[in-house]
Nucleic acid binder design. Sequence first.
RNA 1: GCGAGCUUGGCGGAAUGGUAGACGCACGAGACUUAAAAUCUCGAGUUCGUAAGAACGUGCGGGUUCGAGUCCCGCAGCUCGCACCA
Length: 873
Amino acid sequence: MTAHDMPATYDFHTVEPRWQARWESDGVFAVPDTPPADKPKYYVLEMFPYPSGQLHMGHVRNYALGDVVARYKRARGYAVLHPMGWDAFGLPAENAARERGVHPRQWTLDNIAAMRGTLQRLGFSLNWDREIATCLPEYYGKQQKLFLDFLAAGLVDRRESWVNWDPVDETVLANEQVIDGKGWRSGAPIEKKQLSQWFMRITKFAPDLLDGLNSLDRWPERVRLMQERWIGRSEGARLRFSLAQPPAGFDENLDSVEVFTTRPETLFGMSFLALAPDHPLAAKVAERNVAAADFIAECRRLGTSVEAVEKAEKRGFDTGLRVRHPFLPDQSFPVWIANFVLMDYGSGALFGCPCGDQRDYDFARKYDLPIPLVILPPGENANDWTADKGPWTGEGSLINSGFLDGLSCEAGRTEAIARLEGLGVGTGVVNWRLRDWGVSRQRYWGCPIPVIHCAGCGPVPVPDEQLPVVLPEDVTFDRPGNPLDHHPTWKHVACPKCGKPATRETDTFDTFVDSSWYFARFTAPHAATPTVRSAADGWLAVDQYIGGIEHAILHLLYARFFTRAMRETGHLDVSEPFAGLFTQGMVNHESYRDAKGGWLYPEEVRRTGAGAFHAETGEEITVGRVEKMSKSKRNTVAPVSIIERFGADTARWFVLSDSPPERDMEWTEAGVAGAARFVQRLYRIVRAVATACPADAPEQTGEIPAAVDALRRATHRTIAAVTEALEAFTVNVAVARLHELTSALAEAERAADEPGMAFARREAALTLALLCAPMTPHLGEELLSLLEPNAALAAQRPWPTPEPALLAVTQIKLAVQIMGKLRGTIDAEPDEDGAAVLARAEAEPNVARLLEGKKIVKRIHVPNRIVNFVVAG
RNA sequence: GCGAGCUUGGCGGAAUGGUAGACGCACGAGACUUAAAAUCUCGAGUUCGUAAGAACGUGCGGGUUCGAGUCCCGCAGCUCGCACCA
């Protein structure tokens, strides 16, 4: 290529599509289902997007980061799996259908097409031949197979469960769709309803899910902590309280109440027993007591409202029942129903020990229940420790506790459990906060649960040969409820067992199910079985998973569960799905409001030194907080418009600059412009090298001019520094180092005539091309092609390695301190030690001046680092 | 309430216990230009000083060290997550 062929400015409009086409036609990113034997494998995965319609900046940041890793690892010689797909089921598609009459499938596929186009314009090195969309039968049919295998393995069961029921929309709502006790869409008061639902038995793996966290050393500590708390292991005891005088006709099964406690040593401090409003015994009481029934109804009504949770007022209802104390058979205690007792933790009942628990204390005070003192805090005297001093929730020694008197809480705990076991009324247990995962959703746009309900046979799994159970397309959204339920024919089938008329399950899976195994499907996305063992076992675990912190608990925990369940059913053999996890920060932007308080889009606002004004009316605009880009605040910037104005590389470069990836970043117009300037500048500088420095320019040997030496050292230092930064995920630092080398190369033009400079400039330019390629791949290819027109693609070239000789430091500028304060610098040889250095340091003019009249008590010299004089007087 | 994280120039941020503020943005001065844009060069923590240089400086208070943004103890502020978990 001659200078004439090289455009003076970098025209991303033509350059970017050209290299994208080349990568595609050369198949440079493709990898086989079974990882090649001659290379180490590396699986990079970003959390796949929900196809909402448009890619947003958060996606760009997420995928740019992942692409840096993918391209870098590829250059380091790894076989890199870097797939992309769509989390394509979910409610927004049904909402679009109800609001705009477009079919969910069409809406979803259109969105996917639009977003795929944007991703492709951004030049990510993705395996597009592995693309999956969870809403297609090719994917969800395999998911149905997994479910049936889980069912056969006892990892799934069916049971009654409470749901939030919207009587107007005739649908089940998630907790976050219930606002102040009303449906988010209909505004109707929400009812609690019991439905028969499918559950994944995630609790079966609770101990392993907890233990496994210890092996995830490349996960952020806080995510592991969040999961640990969510799983919530606690040790304690389960014990039964028998009813003192059950009323005549009371159910035999309800003649005792089981409670869980972590503090069995405080049993002598018992004041009352409290039941959850949904507890079976509470229901029994309500049958014959209207006031109790009212109280329970009241609790249910308030249970879902935000207000109730915030007020958190403890309220109770005395049932009149009494229970006997296991250690004090002649004493009995009242049984209350209390709004703060949770049915789904422990056994839905607790014994109240007011002296050792804030909540029990508040309750006892409110209803004037006794507060027996059983724990004496360390350093307190039993004679003046009173209930008025409030509860003591820490450790201490036990008092007023019969056989436990004098023991520490810890010793008392062991003893109390032993006694309970001896009496046969209780046992030491481990309790888990984690609950089984209810996966049934009464929705159309989800994966059908492959079960057929037969009056004679009960729930019958759909036989393998009838899979996939495909969603019918001809559905209507003109009335409330689940369209699958309304469909005239779809659900009516013959029972696979007995052949009699039966009905399909019309529930579909929670969409978290879809995303719980997609990483495994990516390894063999077109296989007839859910996974292919050689592919799944070969590629998994994901070496680097990248996504938002908002999925720290549920998605990651469900995926970890699925991995275990899939291993148990023989679909793969790995213990954890994600070996490394990186949670990137959000993309924020200023928000703008006009005088009336209405939100404005960034493009409607003109910013000047004097302030912010409306671009058309000139009205003064209030600049609000910098916060997460959101449609409601209108502070969004569309990636498509940025790509059109500045190109993909500029967008990528900007989201990777400045802010460390794990922190939030602020999107600014000035920042993008700066990134665009850099892209042009680097192009100009490298173009100048390609024009001025012949490809066969020789390396200078012997006497090397200082400017040449400096540039070569800068080049090799940059290779080392960028490599280190990328390994450490500090892409912002890699960007800074590339800025530095770019400036050094520009500066070298001034010494262009020095012997060997042409070689050094070419070397620097080539290095820049290769090092910037993970971040700005199109620019990287273009620069490389200017320098070496017919060479291999940057995407296929190995990562440069620095020459050790050029990394070595030749001259040290040594800082000289007096009493730890910098007073001057001297030159030193590398590793130079001994008296000569100290002498030169003492002689440094400013140092000598300040040492005048002082006595040097101690001389400290750390070679290559520092000289420090400690003085007296 | 419990837990985690953060706090460094005008702004984003950099810094294996060893010259704090790399790099970028914004800003100022200059060059080029009829002019502007673009580009290039130079400058810049604050205060004092013509300068050399000095004092102060990484949220606040202590400590360890020859030397602390970095390690330890205590405190404050902000952000996020969980939250009646028996």
